[in-house]
Nucleic acid binder design. Structure first.
Lengths: 214, 214
DNA sequence: ACGCCAAGTAATCGCTGATTACATAACGTG
DNA sequence: CACGTTATGTAATCAGCGATTACTTGGCGT
């Protein structure tokens, strides 16, 4: 969408491209968004960047490495979206914070289904080879843990739920909702609500289930 | 496992194979289990079945069609495993039935991670082209709905939760746990419990969260 | 001005999915 | 039993893919 930020192939100053690395990632992002991960080919990316089929391998060791770079970029956007939702959130409303996190998570995933699949797979990309992704993933989990512990300190949750269990359950639940959307499990959705609203309602109900009964 | 059921290439009676269709699916299943979906190639499958590279296309329109057949077979096993867990389950214990369903679901997914990914994707296979998969999927959901409604009749759940919401939430939760496992999100698991036990504990806690407080 | 070296190209390899023309064997029918 | 039809295999081939290699280009520091 912000195509102004994408280095155009017209930026080529002659024999050399200018900033081929970024241009390749941008082209890959666009291609993936159009046709899905499976359709991503190095040659097509090269063609879109206006270079020869072998050129990308000067900048990326393999197709997987290119895809990993795309994932890193997507992960940045994802993490930013989630963390932005928590900006200046009052410490005395940890349950609200967790709900806001979940909503931002779901919104990003439903808005960027293909890229969500990319960043959440460990098969498509070289996750362990990307310290950046691992770090951002860990940071996100730490943020969750922080707010969960704040909520526990405030005695918000039912008894018998330790932090690890709540963290795992919350991750699983929001991941499940997001992936159901991305994996098209709601194609034949015949509930009353709009599917996206159903996701939100489901999230709210889940959090309610964690809380101490009023 | 039950390699006796697999039509051996030695069953070839001469020029014709005997039952190449089944042999191809069996070879594909084995290959996928060994090396993952992405590594599945029609040629390799043909080689394992002892036929020429083009032969499979007499039985499957495309690589995707072959993969869909594999998914159908896996879906059969998956559905059987889940439904078997409910065999003769007493109607007056619907919550127990739902828990048993969830456990059987999780067990199959963790025991067959690669095939679980295959059957739960809508990108790898031609889901809408397989009435069999769609049917079995729908049947599974109907079974869930049945037990949920029984539990609701018994006033087991918290107020404010309609059947659709519980069904969606339950699907999402168990799908999330299963996919976290299959997508290797628990690689860096550092909790106290064994990861598989953590999944079960998480499932139990989720169900507890649906119930009316004692 | 010169030479080094990053970053392109061109050509090629082996593998893939898919298609075509052809060969073989199994089967039903007179 | 002979014969033609049809299902099912082979062989050859195509285009597209990731990846590697040898070569070429041109920008930058000394």
């Amino acid at each position: 969408m912000e195509s102004a930020a994408i280095p155009q192939s017209s930026a080529r100053k002659g024999y050399h491209h200018g900033n081929l690395t970024e241009a390749l990632v941008a082209a890959a992002v666009a291609l993936i968004e159009e046709s899905g991960v499976e359709a991503l080919s190095v040659r097509e990316v090269a063609k879109r960047a206006g270079v020869s089929p072998g050129a990308p391998f000067r900048h990326f060791e393999s197709r997987t490495a290119l895809l990993t770079a795309v994932a890193e970029q997507a992960m940045d956007r994802f993490a930013a979206a989630v963390e932005q939702a928590l900006d200046h959130w009052p410490e005395n409303d940890p349950v609200g914070a967790l709900r806001a996190m979940g909503r931002a998570y779901l919104r990003w995933a439903t808005d960027n289904p293909v890229h969500f699949r990319v960043i959440s797979s460990r098969q498509l990309i070289d996750f362990s080879g990307s310290a950046r992704m691992a770090g951002q993933n860990a940071a996100l989990q730490e943020t969750m843990r922080l707010w969960i512990e704040r909520a526990r300190s405030g005695n918000a949750f039912r008894s018998g739920l330790d932090t690890e269990l709540i963290l795992l359950s919350s991750r699983a639940f929001v991941y499940g909702l997001a992936r159901m959307w991305c994996d098209d499990h709601l194609r034949d959705w015949h509930g009353n609500r709009d599917p996206k609203d159903a996701l939100t309602a489901s999230l709210d109900a889940f959090i309610e289930g964690l809380l101490r009964a009023a």
